[in-house]
Design a protein around this nucleic acid. Sequence first.
DNA 1: TCGATATATATTGAATTGATATATGCATTC
DNA 2: GAATGCATATATCAATTCAATATATATCGA
Lengths: 179, 179
Amino acid sequence: MDIRTLCLGILTMRDATGYEIKKVFEDELSHFYEASFGSIYPALNRMTEDGWIACKAEAQDGRPDKKIYSITSAGRMAFMDALQKKPRKDRIRSEFLAMMMFSDLMAPSRIASLIDERLAALDAHLKEVEVCSDEAATPNVVRFLRGFGQAMYQAEHDYLEENRHLVEAQALMARAAAD
Amino acid sequence: MDIRTLCLGILTMRDATGYEIKKVFEDELSHFYEASFGSIYPALNRMTEDGWIACKAEAQDGRPDKKIYSITSAGRMAFMDALQKKPRKDRIRSEFLAMMMFSDLMAPSRIASLIDERLAALDAHLKEVEVCSDEAATPNVVRFLRGFGQAMYQAEHDYLEENRHLVEAQALMARAAAD
DNA sequence: TCGATATATATTGAATTGATATATGCATTC
DNA sequence: GAATGCATATATCAATTCAATATATATCGA
């Protein structure tokens, strides 16, 4: 399920511009899939060539033509096929956790600072998810995904608060051993 | 903190071959950072050119020379610098969750199957983490990272079990509406 | 004996990113 | 009124990364 497939999926929901598709990646999908313009526009161009989507341009004042993409029957079938494939394993890349791996080499104050910043970022995520949760008539799948994100942020938040001493104390010991 | 920086970090812990570095990515780091040979070997070559690591080749029977890399003083300083930088935000890419986003377009049995497979994979991860946890003399940072992974797998497991009805029921409703 | 896995070195085409380019409209602040 | 930041739009590109591929022997279990 690459960027192209996901753009196609977004277009099964509604017609959109490249810019709007990017917005979907930044809003609904942001907790578990991201994409940049650098792959969205080429993907749209290729799918237009492949006949999976069609493009209608609307002239605008002082801006490039607005290009609105819509899915075709062939595209809808291609996406349904993609949904029958086995999902590949998640890809996770966390610089924060990678840095924790080398916490022996950092000052205890640096470690505390990193963890505090991480906790603050988690708090911000949790607030953001909470604000959205009050909306009525939210589709169940959106509730599901938002709840998923919330559960994971909360789990990480709790884990860090309860276990930060494991890396903070070790840093102190590593420092004592180095002296 | 790119692949090159992480390879450097691994070499602060011990000398290693490219193959052994890959093993570290697959074992200790696997929950939060992955790398392939396609980037490890070029990274090692470039850092050798930059003077951050040194390489000693040992002839082997019937195999390419074994190349053992060790960090230099310059490399150690470069890595310490990297640890002072602000970690960039996590990158998460989950095909499973992306598919859930389009659960309206899937048969309820397909959704159930995907979730069951996901739960099975989480069980396997949890078992794997549990086996390791009994080891004595595990450094605190390893306990921390392993515990982190365990907490996140458990949170996801619990969330899926308690909330799978949100997407499964919606699929039934979507199917009823389509008929 | 065979198949799978481990141990080693690599390369490459394709996918992806973050930065960059271009440019107007709107809102806010000074 | 000017400056700044953000939103709305289209894109490209150098650098990074990956999965597949190539090569080849040793070990282990069925």
